[in-house]
Every structure is written in structure tokens, then in C-alpha cells.
Amino acid sequence: MSWFNDYTLRTVILGTSLLGLFSGALGCIAVLRRQSLVGDTLAHASLPGICLAYLLFRSREALPLMLGAAFAGLIAMGIVSVTQRATKTDPNSALGTVLTIFFGAGAVILGIIQRGHDAGQAGLDKFLFGQAASLVTSQVVAIATIGLISLFVFAMVFKEFKLLAFDPIFAESVGLPVRRTNIILTGLLVGAVVVGLNTVGVILLSAMLVAPGVAARQWTDQLVKMVVLAGLFGCLGGGLGAYLSTVAAEMPTGPVVVLVLVAWVVISLIIGPAKGIAFRAKRRQEATS
């Protein structure tokens, strides 16, 4: 176990596992509300936020960049919400439009920064695909702090989330503060996105949010268990992906983590006891024989 003594590797694996844990659990919000594009939009929209935060503070410290990302994500969701209400656009079209506009703007600003021959900007482009190898302890602490706060808030609003995800019309009819709850749930997704930026990168982050939840759904029919399993799958997938990308392949972390998680989704779809294909086939067989 020599790799465990390696400080850098330990930081990287710890950080990515924590990230997988938080984004997997919180990602169930997006999965169950059929809002995977929301995660995608938040992630892509964070790029201009990161770049502007860098220009403003001239620093690659984790906190200002994360705040910039969160701020941009919230503005993007605000624009989506206003667009939808003002023009009665279909939610996915509104999300897709905002996603591309923000990501395009982010790519332009990133290009301008990179042409500036500013030594400090080196590595800003790592936010595209993520580079877990560059994780430092302060970032891991930031991931753990934001993640724990988000999970705590998620536990507080769990009852409201469940009702809103299962039956939003009923939720509104009984006077549940739908708007307030929606804002909190979106805020939690923003939290999950922000912690994942360094590691997985903006482009593939939504897979990190969605894949663990989709895999977990194949293994259980209970909401609480699904969230716990998604956290576990995210944690293991994140750690393994980071290890493979850093040690074995020297590749960007995002794609490797996502490939690991997607492989697990495929396996779960086949053998998952709750909804997996093999299990359903077996049940059908039992029913007919």
C-alpha cells in the first residue's frame, strides 16, 4: 500500500471520494425530479463565474473561484426561471439556451485570460475536464465543508423534497412553500456542482451528479436507501476514478471518473435487484411458470 503514504495521492483520493459522496447523494434531487439538465446547466454556467472570479481576485484559491461559480450558477437559474415565466418556453429549451450562452461566454473569457500571458492563470483551463492531481488540502477542506452543510440542509428539507418530487401539484395544493423549497433544492445542486469543479470539471460534472443516483435506483425502491447508496457509489467511483486517472493513466480525472461511474450504471441496470433487467426477467419467468 505504498500509494497510501504518498501525500499528494492521499489528498487526491480523499478529495475525489468526498466529492463523489456529496454529489452522488445530492444528485438524487436532479434524478428524481427528472432535472438532469439542471445539473448540466449549473455546471456549464459556472465557467464564466470561475473566470470572472479569477480576474477579480487574481487568485486561484479555491474559495473565491467556488463563490464565483456558485454565483454564476444561481444567476443562470434565475434567467432560466424568468425566461420560462415570461415566454412560456419549455423548461428544457430554456435550460439548454442558458447553458450554451453561459458556457460560450465562459470559453471566451477563458480565451482572453489565456492570451494575457499571465503566469497565474496556468491551470485555469483544468476546470474544463478537471484535474484531481492538483487538489490541495485547502480544497479538500472546502469540499468537505460545503458538502457537509449541503447534506445537512438536504436532511432538513427531505420531507418537502419527497413531496415535491413525487407530486408537485399536490404539494402546491396543500400550501407547501413550493418556491422557497425549489430555491433551496437548486441551491443544494449548486453546492454539489461547486465542490466538483476542481476535480471533475464543468463539462462532465452532471454525469457525476446523475450517474450514482441512476445506479442506486436499480438497487432499491426506497428513497432514503437510494440517497445513501448514491453517496456510496459516488464515493467509491470517485476514489477509484481518481486513482486510475492519477496513477495509471495520467489522464484528466473527470472523464475517468465518469467512465467508472457509467460502467457501474450499466452493471446496475443489468443486475440491480430492484429494477435491473436480469431481475425483472427472472420475475417474469416466475410469474409465467
Binding site: K162, L163, L176, Q222, L223
Partner: peptide, 23 residues
């Protein structure tokens, strides 16, 4: 949706229970 019959019926009590409180 991943939930059982009891939990769905429990949702009927939520408005009386109140925001952020548990049944």
C-alpha cells in the same frame, strides 16, 4: 417513484405538520 403506500398517505399530513417538521 421510490416510495411505499404508507409514505404516500403520510404526505396528506404534511400541511398540518408544517414546513421542516417531521410527522
Amino acid at each position: 417513484f421510490p416510495t411505499d403506500v404508507f409514505d404516500v398517505v403520510l404526505m396528506g399530513t404534511f400541511s398540518r405538520v408544517g414546513w421542516l417538521k417531521s410527522p
